[in-house]
Simulated assay, not measured.
Amino acid sequence: MKKVRIGVIGAGLRGGLSLYWHKPEGESEIVALADISEERQQKYQEKIGTPIFLTKDYKDLLVRDDIDAIAVLSPDYLHEEHVIAALEAGKHVYSEKPLAITVEGCDRIIDAWEKSGKHLMVGFNMRYMSMYQTMKGLIDSGAIGDLKAVWVRHFVGFGGYFYYHDWHALRKNTTSLLLQKGSHDLDVIHWITGRYTTKVSAFGGLDYFGGDMPNDLTCPECSLKNECPEYVPHTFTECAFRKEVDVEDNNMLIMELEGGVKASYLQCHFTPDYERNYTFIGTKGRIENDDVNDKVYLKTRKTGTWNEYSDVTYDMKPEDGTHGGSDPKIAQDFIELILRGKQPLTTPFAGRMSVAVGCAATESIRSGGVPITISQQSSFIKN
């Protein structure tokens, strides 16, 4: 194979990622799109620039011989169905995170992948961001000694716009936002530390969004739109304070990782700012990021060596491409995986484990904070 011909399922929120694969004179090309919206189909066709096959039914892509790989960019609750169907049809698959919205769903996907003989890649693009690669490199180098603790705070300043005006706000579609939004952070904790979570206790609540507004109310139709702080005029317009909203808008997790490393993760969707703050503490110092100003700080403690005499600030260099330059990198790694067998920075099992933590933490929250043990063993019983 000299070129990977890709069919895309879903031209919505993450549809833009697929544009990095469209290189008709190169090693990858978008040849088809499945999306239930004709309007999104036409807008996507205009962006691509060259004629592609368009359909509302994703199954039409699976029977085509001119498609080698499927990019699953559909809503979370459809990932399991779409990924398994594509693998069983003999296609390589790129799946946006989360891999599924249940651990059992992830296990069924991994089972289908192992049987298919095809490649499966999960879209953890934060592993491709220079900031987090820098932090991982410093920790792996021993710059802070033996890692002991991790603190992560995620201020989701656009939480209402991103997650409470559409399907994300319902448990049946997401399980919780610890899978949708939190899966990135939980994965980065696992990746940078090199350890998976074994136990979690969590608290959270729906303390701002939701309420008693009608489920069919949209922002443009609302009489309160001129005074509502969550008013949005376009794209996602379902009322963020509608009755059916049942997904927590703030979460606090305490985790124990393999080897006894302790970690905490805090997420809030009604803060005024947008920021991810990571701190890793070891026996010789700590590192902390500032993603607003694109910096990583290395601070050292008294060690009796030259290291204690200075702290170091790392300035991230600007990179081209969306999501801090990570999207073109992760898109290229999918092509490298298929054409040359180069292993990407992420794995399907890592996708499974971030979902496992999100699901366990959600169970803990909805059970009053009880500790939940997380197993790495498949919950899928093979025949």
Score class of each variant (00 low, 15 high):
His168Thr: 07
Lys299Trp: 05
Asn125Met: 12
Gly285Tyr: 10
Ser264Arg: 11
Val357Asp: 09
Tyr77Met: 12
Tyr274His: 11
Pro220Ala: 09
Met252Leu: 12
Phe241Asn: 15
Gly304Asn: 11
Ile338His: 07
Thr313Trp: 04
Gly368Asn: 14
Cys268Trp: 10
Ser375Gln: 10
Ser95Gly: 13
Ser18Tyr: 04
Ile287Glu: 00
Met213Arg: 14
His168Lys: 05
Thr235Ala: 13
Arg301Asp: 14
Tyr274Arg: 10
His184Met: 14
Thr237Trp: 12
Glu363Ile: 07
Asn173Thr: 09
Gly205Ser: 13
Gly90Trp: 08
Asp68Phe: 09
Ser74Asn: 07
Ala360Gln: 10
Gly341Glu: 06
Ile70Asp: 07
His79Asn: 15
Ser378Lys: 08
Lys329Cys: 11
Gln180Phe: 10
Arg64His: 03
Val370Asn: 14
Gln332Lys: 15
Trp191Ile: 13
Gly10Pro: 05
Ala11Trp: 07
Leu253Gln: 12
Pro272Cys: 03
Val8Gly: 03
Glu104Met: 11
His234Ala: 14
Gln42Tyr: 05
Val72Cys: 11
Met1Leu: 14
Lys56Ala: 09
Cys359His: 10
Asp291Gly: 04
Pro229Arg: 00
Thr174Ile: 06
Pro328Val: 11
Gly358Tyr: 09
Lys118Val: 03
Val93Phe: 12
Leu179His: 10
Leu186Glu: 03
Asp311Thr: 02
Asp107Tyr: 11
Gly123Val: 09
Ser74Tyr: 06
Pro348Glu: 06
Ile48Cys: 03
Cys222Trp: 06
Ser183Glu: 03
Asn293His: 00
Ala100Gln: 07
Ile84Thr: 01
Ala356Gln: 02
Tyr77Gly: 06
His234Gly: 08
Lys56Asn: 09
Ala356Lys: 09
Gly211Ser: 03
Val245Gly: 04
Ile281Val: 15
Glu308Asn: 00
Tyr274Glu: 08
Asp65Pro: 04
Asp140Leu: 02
Ser379His: 10
Lys43Gly: 00
Ile381Leu: 11
Leu345Thr: 05
Val103Tyr: 01
Ser379Pro: 02
Asp65Cys: 08
His165Glu: 13
Ala360Pro: 00
Glu256Pro: 14
Ser183Gly: 01
Ile374Gly: 09
Trp306Val: 02
Val232Ala: 05
Arg14Ser: 10
His323Cys: 13
Gly325Cys: 01
Gly325Pro: 06
Leu73Ala: 05
Thr362Pro: 13
Met121Glu: 07
Phe334Tyr: 04
Met121Ala: 08
Ile109Asp: 06
Ser354Cys: 08
Tyr309Trp: 09
Cys239Pro: 09
Tyr163Val: 02
Ile101Glu: 10
Ile372Trp: 09
Pro75Asn: 11
Glu80Ser: 07
Arg108Gly: 04
Ala361Asn: 11
His79Pro: 06
Ile381Glu: 02
Glu27Pro: 13
Ala11Lys: 03
Ile30Pro: 04
